[in-house]
Design a protein around this nucleic acid. Structure first.
Length: 484
RNA sequence: CGGGGCGUAGCGCAGUUUGGUAGCGCACCAGCUUUGGGAGCUGGGGGCCCCGGGUUCAAGUCCCGGCGCCCCGACCA
């Protein structure tokens, strides 16, 4: 009995999620070995397990970008200050968080170089050179890179001084085309978030106050974390002609007229890994949907000394057959007990564990254990590969459904400020409330409640007649929330 | 950047009030016994006590300055 109690204590290496969500989050990041703090302020090291998740995200998105006609390229890390200064709103938005290079070797630079916080300006400079004719359009380019934003308060994956992302930058011949592109890429993000990350999102438009610095319109997908706070999971901007005009991106159209291009940009970052943690994680640690899990199946052999060879042999055969259907590892380490391994793979979020011991060999079966529900399933040896594959698909679907149910249960239509505040103080979540459309009310709500308009959803989720703040007729019913 | 907290072995901490040989648990190494939910015993190794000054015979402990991390705000993917 004593032993069992002690064993429980060890699991407490992770702070319970409901006790202290922030501490729980940090514990999961560190204990699952996704990332570690580095000697550089605000900068983290993404460890192999975290990076493998990022590589899976990259792979899935790249397929989708290719399928929609985009190509990858790479632009410089450094941006001359004069380029950066050209678009007024853009400069104003980003200046507070730009890191500058002022010296090369021992020589001071004649012009400071910004370490890119985003690449619109350097990319537009190149596009200006490359685009001459309507035949050059559309330009559909994406870049995977790091960017730097000198953040004051940082948290692993959610906000770091340097982070990894992709940024798509496109140029089109017409406003309609650019708008269609911005919406199409938002749609790609939504489909990806839901089908790959198993994170349900609300797609919509940002308000003027919340839009990207320099954009005409900003679209977003918003996800709900399990502590009731929102996280922007991806953005897509219709840049209009703001940048084209200051960077002189012009083309000669079929009608002989010189015209400015219409642009978009869109991105997702390593922040998505933070979202995966906060949407699916629990007191046992990380829980990954199979589609992004670096390891989908961990085989844990139970090998008493006198049966070691026999179990290992059987486990190796099992590994071979499971490798055909899923990313599988066989954990044959002898320095750890099975129980230790169970906890370890759960902590790392592996969606399915397979237990194989003498009892299973005797019965010609294995035991499958789901990470998301803890459910144990006995399966005949001949059916293992097929069952594991379909179980992984089931887990993927169930995780999305569970997250969607949570999101729905935590989305509330409110009619007055008292109710608004009360829910934010207790349950949080998404709040649907009427809005008159004025910046003044949006700002006031933010100041009094800490909640911002996450987006004006494309699909109506609820409808209020009056502005929750001023009582004037509502022009929209946005999604409000406290956000990361 | 404002308010609060914390920096002692890889991790979690005690020791700081009242200055006097740097400790505990886990982890690590070796050996034996173990293995179906974080194994047991025995024996070991590991410390610029965040950094820099100062006070003192003597500083993990007192004083001054800095840096880092966490939480709550403001700003942001």
């Amino acid at each position: 009995m004593q032993k069992a109690d002690n064993a429980k204590e060890f699991v407490k290496e992770i702070t319970p999620r409901d006790k202290d969500f922030s501490q729980w989050y940090i514990d999961v990041v560190l204990r699952a070995e996704l990332a570690d703090y580095s000697p550089v302020r605000g900068c983290m090291v993404i460890r192999p397990h975290g990076y493998a998740i990022w590589e899976n995200i990259q792979k899935s998105l790249d397929e989708r970008f290719r399928a929609t006609g985009h190509q990858n390229a790479y632009f410089p890390l450094f941006i001359p200050e004069s380029f950066f200064q050209r678009e007024a709103e853009h400069v104003e938005g980003f200046t507070p968080e730009v890191a500058w290079v002022t010296q090369g070797g021992s020589e001071p630079l004649t012009e400071r170089l910004a370490v890119r916080p985003t690449s619109e300006t350097i990319i537009c400079t190149m596009y200006s050179k490359w685009i001459q004719s309507w035949r050059d359009l559309p330009v559909l380019i994406n870049q995977w890179c790091n960017v730097v934003r000198w953040e004051k308060a940082t948290r692993p994956f959610l906000r770091t001084a340097e982070f990894l992302w992709q940024e798509g930058h496109t140029v089109h011949a017409s406003e309609e085309e650019a708008e269609a592109e911005a919406l199409r890429m938002l749609d790609v993000y939504k489909e990806f978030a839901e089908n790959v990350l198993a994170i349900p999102v609300i797609a919509g438009k940002k308000t003027e106050r919340e839009k990207f610095a320099g954009a005409l319109r900003t679209y977003t997908i918003e996800a709900l974390m399990s502590d009731g706070k929102a996280l922007q999971a991806g953005t897509s901007h219709n840049l209009g002609q703001h940048f084209a005009k200051v960077f002189d991106i012009t083309y000669l159209d079929k009608d002989g007229q010189l015209k400015y291009g219409w642009q978009t940009s869109w991105g997702v970052s390593t922040r998505l890994i933070g979202a995966l943690i906060m949407v699916h994680g629990d007191d046992r640690g990380l829980s990954l949907p199979p589609a992004v899990a670096p390891i989908e199946v961990a085989i844990v052999p139970i090998m008493p000394g006198n049966q070691r060879e026999r179990v290992l042999e059987s486990a190796s055969a099992l590994l071979q057959s499971l490798t055909q259907v899923a990313r599988t590892v066989l954990d044959s380490r002898e320095e750890y007990t099975p129980g230790w391994k169970f906890n370890e793979w759960e902590m790392r979020g592996v969606p399915v564990r397979v237990e194989l011991g003498p009892r299973d060999i005797a019965n010609n079966q294995v035991v499958l254990v789901r990470r998301d529900t803890g459910e144990k399933i006995q399966v005949g040896r001949d059916d293992v590969a097929r069952t594991v594959r379909s179980l992984l698909d089931t887990v993927q679907r169930d995780m999305l459904q569970k997250a969607a149910r949570f999101r729905d249960e935590n989305t509330r239509l409110v009619s007055c400020m008292d109710e608004f505040k009360e829910i934010l103080q207790t349950k949080r979540g998404f709040l649907l409330a009427g809005w008159c459309g004025h910046d003044q009310c949006e700002t006031s709500i933010k100041e009094t409640t800490g909640a911002t308009v996450r987006c004006l959803p494309f699909e109506e989720m609820g409808k209020a007649d009056k502005c929750v703040c001023c009582g004037e007729p509502a022009v929209a019913t946005p999604v409000f929330a406290r956000a990361y």
